[in-house]
Amino acid sequence: MNKVKASGFTKQMARNMFYGGSVFFIFVFAALIFDSERKIPFRSNAEAITPAVERGKGLWETRNCIGCHTLLGEGAYFAPELGNVYKRRGPEFIKAWIASQPTHIPGRRQMPQFNFSEEQLNDMVEFLRWTNNVNTENWPPNIEG
């Protein structure tokens, strides 16, 4: 006489669920990657990169601005987000603010004085203008960053 096993969760069922679920989520992940890669050229604003934007990015990197500021959500959270500063404040304010540092206001964090030339200030503004026009799908979530 054969004994009938009680149906339950077997090792084979667990293995099948693991492999089936893994394959399913690998396909989902691959589809998300494909979708993101397809959208990047339309969102990146790469066609607007000029030599001034490249020089401004070089200043951003060599002066370690990202050590204090965030740009499009990346960087340190010590100082304001600058991905939309061009829209918030405008080019003349940006140049005047950078040139006036440090402010020596008691109790306020101080940005260093970089002694930028007028051309370097213009390049930095162009870089920030370019980042302002990258399609970030409304990042940062509010205008003040």
Rank of each mutant, 00 (worst) to 15 (best):
N84Q: 15
N84A: 15
N84L: 14
V85P: 10
V85R: 09
V85N: 13
V85A: 13
V85E: 14
V85H: 14
Y86Q: 08
Y86N: 06
Y86H: 10
Y86A: 04
K87M: 13
K87P: 11
R89V: 15
R89G: 15
R89L: 15
G90V: 09
G90I: 12
P91C: 05
P91V: 00
P91Y: 07
E92Y: 11
E92T: 12
E92S: 13
F93W: 15
F93M: 12
F93A: 08
I94C: 05
K95Y: 10
K95D: 03
K95H: 09
A96G: 04
A96C: 01
W97F: 15
W97V: 12
W97E: 14
W97S: 12
I98Q: 02
I98H: 02
I98T: 05
I98N: 07
A99N: 05
A99K: 06
S100W: 10
S100V: 10
S100P: 04
Q101F: 03
Q101I: 08
Q101P: 01
P102A: 07
T103P: 02
T103I: 08
T103A: 12
T103W: 13
T103L: 15
H104E: 09
H104Y: 10
I105V: 10
I105Q: 06
I105T: 07
P106Q: 13
P106H: 00
P106I: 11
P106M: 10
G107V: 04
G107Q: 06
G107N: 08
G107S: 08
R108E: 07
R108L: 08
R109S: 00
R109A: 00
R109D: 00
R109V: 02
R109M: 00
R109T: 00
Q110C: 07
Q110K: 07
Q110H: 07
Q110R: 08
Q110F: 04
Q110D: 10
M111D: 03
M111A: 02
M111P: 00
M111S: 05
M111T: 05
P112K: 13
P112H: 13
P112G: 08
Q113A: 06
Q113S: 05
Q113P: 00
F114I: 04
N115D: 06
N115K: 05
N115I: 06
N115P: 00
N115Y: 03
N115F: 06
F116I: 05
F116A: 01
S117K: 02
S117M: 03
S117R: 04
S117T: 02
E118H: 01
E118D: 04
E118S: 04
E119P: 03
E119A: 10
E119S: 08
E119Q: 12
Q120Y: 09
Q120A: 12
L121C: 04
L121A: 01
L121F: 06
N122T: 11
N122V: 11
N122R: 10
D123G: 01
